[in-house]
Amino acid sequence: MLLLLAATPLCLLTALMVGSVTTDLATLWTTLMPGTSSPDMALALDSQIILELRLPRSLAAFGAGALLAVAGALMQVLLRNPLADPYVLGVSGGAATGALSAMLLGLAGILVTAGAFLGALCAAGLVFGIAQARGTWAPDQLLLTGVVIAMGWGALISLLLTLAPQRNVQGMLFWLMGDLSAARHGFPALLVLMVALLLGLLLARSLNVLALGDQQGALLGLPVARIRIVLYLLASLLTAVAVTLGGSIGFVGLVIPHLLRLAIGSDHYLLLPGSALAGGCLLVLADTLARTLFAPHQIPVGVLTALLGIPVFLYLLLRKPTGAPA
């Protein structure tokens, strides 16, 4: 946990320094400290790159990664399944359908973002409505509903990709794989993250109880149905915000909480903030690599998270016998 706290500023610093134009710590210092102005033209350019390009993008990456990891942790308790991720109930599918529809209509920028957010809310609302109508929030029922609906979104996405003119397809694919190159506004995401973490800490003991199962939870005094609804809405909202910011970046939401459960256990007082920090760091690093590795080409960050994360995850899984965390 302390390690994560220490790693966060390091990751952010790295992200600010590295790129097509590499800056040193001294430049960074002058840039970030207010009140220092420099007559040096080169320095001015550097500071512009840092303040206007790298800083917002890094913050957005941190926000998206943190949101996805926290949403994943919540979704795993909600579905009582350590393999659940934020996308399993179709929120990302809805967002992708919304965003791709907007692109197909020739819209750009903020309208694609709006489309993604609307789509995500639609998807979350749909599953919510079905669960309410059926009167059951049992994990397996919810999972089944969500998975089927996610498949539906998948079909719609394929349809949109087939119909789209050639010149749009690459943008769409980038969006689908998760890409932060257009992310400029990290602050709303960070705000949502802070609120979610505060709420999460209030809920942490209830989550610990819910993790024991519905019946056991109720016997210990937990209002199971109410907690499930709160949890579902919170996880969906976090996912919607993250997906709106960076597309459906995979892997972070599944693996970060899972990894942390292996490393520090499942106490949600630690797991939720830990997931936020680790998810944020991972995505900042991945995004830094995504824009530098094949510079001047940028690759979608989602591709990198998966390529980097999967070997690490498999290593940890094989090293540790199942169910024997530290």
């Binding site: 003991r205 993790a211 106490d267």
Partner: peptide
Amino acid sequence: HVDMFPMTVWDAALLGRYA
């Protein structure tokens, strides 16, 4: 009872105080 998530024996017992 089936446990899905890791938790220490101490923490699990302490959850008895939830209510």
